[in-house]
């Protein structure tokens, strides 16, 4: 597939999932996916296609339509399906220059693996934690990657590519009720591949992770500001530049054992 050079029109596919509100678990537009859609809608000359692999009847999809999408394509998939093959098929049939996704889903496996698996199948590069797309053209996209504490890293990536949009991307526009009601949900026909690995899993509600207590030692506002913004000093760590994959894995394993994560 040839990426468009100096394209007059840019084909952008946004993959949208149904999110879950952190307080009530009510279904909603997923935060990162909504940011991905916002980014797509604000790209100049972009032709945006929005795709959801899942339940076409979910009312939360209307919240995406409310952002000004005239239509949304749904590849109907049951909960237990593996959505990677059907999305790969779709993207092969409907070539896109940019595929935007959120970092990870707000429900289900929420592994954050989907963009990587897609990119692997398609043979495209993938950029995680994208905060902004600065320019697209000449077979390349200039993007900004979000790093901790508001830092950004400028990257250039060859097209086509998969971009995972980070929380640091601009907030999504308000969803307008009437637009959401009037937007079309187009149900496409799609094959279903059952996730065989998943079938063996037992699923249970997540336990709340224990949190390290944060003792605020700062006495003054200036101290608190410093504590909130300063780089972590990271004592005890070391920078390893592994020669081989095995060497790197070894180092990670060693650290996990030291920390008592693995026993």
């Amino acid at each position: 597939m040839q990426p468009e050079m100096q394209s007059s029109e840019l084909n952008v596919s946004v993959l949208l999932s149904v999110g879950a509100h952190p307080k009530t678990a009510r279904s909603r537009r997923a935060d990162q996916d909504a940011k991905a859609l916002e980014l797509a809608l604000s790209l100049p000359k972009a032709r945006v296609a929005a795709i959801h692999a899942g339940d076409a009847g979910d009312e939360a999809l209307r919240q995406y339509l409310g952002m000004g999408l005239p239509a949304l394509q749904v590849l109907p998939q049951p909960k237990e399906a593996d959505v990677v093959p059907v999305l790969v098929d779709y993207l092969r049939q409907h070539p896109a220059t940019l595929v935007l996704t959120g970092g990870k889903a707000e429900q289900g496996e929420s592994s954050g693996m989907l963009p990587y698996l897609l990119a692997q199948e398609l043979g495209w590069p993938v950029v995680p934690r994208v905060a902004a797309v600065e320019s697209v053209g000449n077979g390349k996209a200039a993007v900004l990657q979000a790093l901790p504490r508001g830092q950004r890293r400028a990257l250039t990536v060859s097209l086509p590519c998969v971009l995972c949009i980070d929380e640091a991307a601009p907030a999504p526009r308000q969803s307008a009720f009437a637009l959401g009601q009037r937007g079309k949900i187009e149900v496409l026909s799609a094959a279903v591949t059952t996730d065989s690995e998943r079938a063996d899993w037992t699923v249970q509600p997540a336990r709340k992770r224990p949190k390290r207590l944060k003792v605020v030692k700062a006495k003054t506002a200036a101290d608190r500001f410093k504590a909130a913004t300063a780089k972590a000093s990271g004592d005890g760590g070391q920078v390893i530049v592994p020669k081989t994959v095995e060497e790197g894995a070894e180092a990670i394993l060693k650290m996990l054992k030291e920390e008592g994560v693995l026993r």
Partner: peptide, 16 residues
């Protein structure tokens, strides 16, 4: 609000 999605400032957050 309903047609334009243009509630200003904290409006959208409160409605969400």
């Amino acid at each position: 609000t309903l047609e334009k999605g243009a509630t200003p400032n904290k409006g959208p957050e409160v409605l969400e």
